[in-house]
Design a protein around this nucleic acid. Sequence first.
RNA 1: GCCGGGAUGGUGAAAUUGGUAAACACGCAGGACUUAAAAUCCUGUGGCCGUAAGGCCUUACGGGUUCGAUUCCCGUUCCCGGUACCA
Length: 832
Amino acid sequence: MNYDFKTIEAKWQEHWEDNKSFKVERDSSKKKYYLLEMFPYPSGRIHMGHVRNYGIGDAVARFMRMKGFNVLHPIGWDAFGLPAENAAIQNKTHPAQWTEENISSMQMQLRSLGFSYDWDREIATCRPEYYRWNQWCFLQFYEKGLVYRKKSQVNWCEACNTVLANEQVVDGCCWRCDGEVEDRFQEGWFLKITDYADRLLEGCKTLSGKWPDKVLAMQSNWIGKSYGAEVDFQVKGKDEAIKVFTTRPDTLYGATFMVLAPEHPLTLELSRGTDQETAVDEFISKVKQEDKVSRTSETGEKEGVFTGAYAVNPLTGEDVPVWSANFVLMDYGTGAIMSVPAHDQRDLDFARKYNLLVRVVIEPAEGSLDAATMTEAFSSDGTMARSGSFDGLRGDAARRKVCEFLEDKKIGKATVNFRLRDWGVSRQRYWGTPIPIVHCDDCGLVPVPQDQLPVQLPLDVELGDRGRSPLTTLAEFYEAQCPACGKSARRETDTLDTFVCSSWYFDRFTSAQNDQFAFDKDDVDYWMPVDQYVGGIEHAILHLLYSRFFHLVFHDLGLVKSEEPFEHLLTQGMVIKDGAKMSKSKGNVIDPDEIIQNYGADTARLFILFAAPPAKDLEWSSQGVEGCYRFLKRVWRIFDDFANEIRSAGSVSQGYEADTKELSELRRMTHVTIRRVTDDIQVRMQFNTAVSAIMELVNHLYAFRDGWTSQETKSNEAIAVVRESFDTLILLLSPFAPHVAEEMWSLLGHETSLVEVEWPVFNESLTRTEELLIVVQVNGKVRQRITVSASASQEDIKSQALGDAKIEEQTKGKEIKKVIVVPGKLVNIVVK
RNA sequence: GCCGGGAUGGUGAAAUUGGUAAACACGCAGGACUUAAAAUCCUGUGGCCGUAAGGCCUUACGGGUUCGAUUCCCGUUCCCGGUACCA
């Protein structure tokens, strides 16, 4: 019988579907396990990255199910977003239609891969049943004071015609379309993620060891906490102070000038009435013309202009000139800095260029600095000098003392600054969740009452006017009554960033069909947190930070017990071909469907798990796929050889001693393989080595077969041992190649599907051998291999090693200084 | 620059607590089966020297610790990812 993967896979997919094999319910009598993979955007086709992501997840889900856990393994669709809108304009369809069609075809593909999802929990974020609760979340945040509206400099993507959050700007370009991002001044909605900066950072510590260090480091850097001080510099001749943030209050005596960001309101104000007026105007307009990328690149020339004004250094009492320069950013700190050229490279470069005063106030432990000639700023810790009564203080202590002084004098204070900005969630596009707010001339911003949710996204819109969001042109949508006073009012026409949808979908999965709540308290507290989350590294900051933020807020609102949504995180590497990420433009895309057609889902899944450890990039290899296909055929053939003979065998009786060496070796191999595969999946999450171990067992069965078939009489016990091996092989293979495993399992006469079978347990005593191979080294070099009885004492091993002919030859005439015996491993003889 | 991760055969990789480097697979070579091919099965396969027995070398590079280092420590080079006039 040939390995007919097409028939087998279709058969079992149908079986799982008809029986709802992977449907789960909350059951407090069972230990839960929530396995989640990042849900896909319904682009239309599954790609290899998905196969990898979901292949890894499914292996773990199936394994944990067999280990007896109540496993929640859901799937859904991150279905709002720009591609639908753009595709709809191009193909003259509707985003809803385009999206739903894509969902259907991708569902088919996921089914054809045999993933073990609870399909009853499937969600799509673009459906009112979902986005209704998205609006509800927004209002929860609103009521808690975590939502506000402000006019600000925003990142505008011209190509996408919308605003982007800071996290969505990559190297000055749009994360989605790669188009250039420009600054715009615009009003929009923000979520106060900065209120949670400290707790999000603290959380990184508790996740250490459970999330990849890399992701935690990226998040910590993104949050960017820095300790320092805020100091007020009085403007000379005006009742106005310039507030600066510095991480080096110990260098305050060396602040010889100040620099404002060009956008800083005081830049313009201070120059008025001075002879620098026109110079400042020209400078500001020049900087405005520069694009964001070159403005913020480090290699860019530092340029500035004197504002004509002076401020007073609060510690030295000196007048210091106030400049404005392109390298000071309005959106970090206070948008103004004190410049200490001797101890900051940028300040020094600027001072040299414009001939400003340099004063050394921190002395290094070794050598000395010459303010007149130095070209490299000394920015490490050192001893304070030329700093009045602070002279001699160092490092943190120095900074603390200066801060205390500033607080005493009420001219500054120790403070903490974050790099993290609030999350702008307004999008000027159609295909997203309508923001449930009404603008009333009398009442101001009025939230839509919960019983009026969802604010439906109208489907009868004209798309294609690329300048504006369609909602702003649709009177039936934006004309509304004020929920508070009943007067006619205007509905908000911005939609929510789609990252809002994905910030809590894992909670929704716990009560996917509930139409009373976003999620049921008992459900969410039973299932959450996600025990294992699997997804791409590209969401290290975006989705993973937003989700943590949402979950903390939910926690504070008493909606969920846990604080962190994802207990363990695995970020899988990319699938690459010819050294590059698969992409249409490079023409190196392998279509999963084609692989499934030619080799089957089991082969596709096996290859993708076998070819590389999960966290590493995986180089696609058609020969490697061929190899995995060959392996499954090899499994099938040896199974076919034995199936009839072992089908009616019983189990091996307890205390059975194998009649032959071959049988006891097969038994040992079987139990060793259980141990290896279990450990690889459960502890190490290393599926490539798990598959290798199974391959070794199969190789062993082939070697075993030759002796077996020539044997004339076989005891029932002997047949039972062989059966045990095949049962085990099938079970161990089942998380990786579930279809062929199910088929073989049923061919052996088992009546239950593997879904209900327990993971095999190894017997430690059966994994031991009677003889051990010991390596004998002389001076650390392997010279001989000897076999010793497993019960041999260290002394026995030592004398057997020393008595070996070859070792005697190696040690002849030399003095034996030391003999090291590592039980079960090696003997090292040190000679001179 | 800073942060994180890497570098092992012809290739993907393995070595779990410092203990036989290269498991498993691909590729390649040889053999069996076959009229032949495919498929399949078996054997070999890090490099150098040697007919062989065997020896020497080998985990990016240079040091160190240790009886023993792919693994730990110090330094260097290169590669990948993130981030960056962040005050």
